[in-house]
Computed example of a mutant assay.
Amino acid sequence: MGLWTVAAMTAGAVGAVALVPVALGAVGFTSAGIAAGSWAASMMSSAAAANGGGVAAGSLVAVLQSAGAAGISTATTAGLASAGAGVGAVAGRLIK
């Protein structure tokens, strides 16, 4: 494994872990709840309409709001780092 691949894997892992909380907040999944008028609010409205007025526990909206409100768990962080490293590995091979 070359130096570029290792560097790209590291950057991908760190970037994925650092950017997911930022991305969640940017689309409206915040620690204070779903931001009014946001993409998250639209998503929640659609989910509630499809489920008779409520958002189902374990649904994508519920999981994303949980992550936005409480942060990302250790297991999720490890998964994000692995996914980011995988993307970095591919990118590193393309760079050389």
Rank of each mutant, 00 (worst) to 15 (best):
A47D: 05
L60V: 09
V6D: 09
T74I: 13
A69E: 15
V63D: 11
V90D: 04
V87R: 01
L60Y: 12
S59H: 11
G58L: 04
M9Q: 14
A57F: 07
S82L: 15
M44F: 04
N51I: 00
P21M: 11
G58T: 00
V14Y: 02
T77H: 12
Q65V: 00
A13M: 12
A67Q: 09
L19K: 01
G15H: 13
V22S: 00
V61P: 12
A75G: 10
A70N: 13
W4P: 12
L24R: 05
S42R: 10
S82H: 00
V55I: 15
G54F: 11
T5I: 15
A18L: 13
I72N: 14
A83R: 02
I34S: 04
A40H: 09
A8K: 01
A7Y: 08
S82I: 13
A89D: 04
S82C: 15
A32T: 12
L94T: 03
A83V: 13
A83L: 15
V63M: 12
V55F: 03
A57K: 07
A75R: 11
A49Y: 07
S82P: 02
S59C: 05
V17S: 06
T77G: 14
G37K: 14
G53M: 05
G88M: 14
A26S: 14
M1E: 06
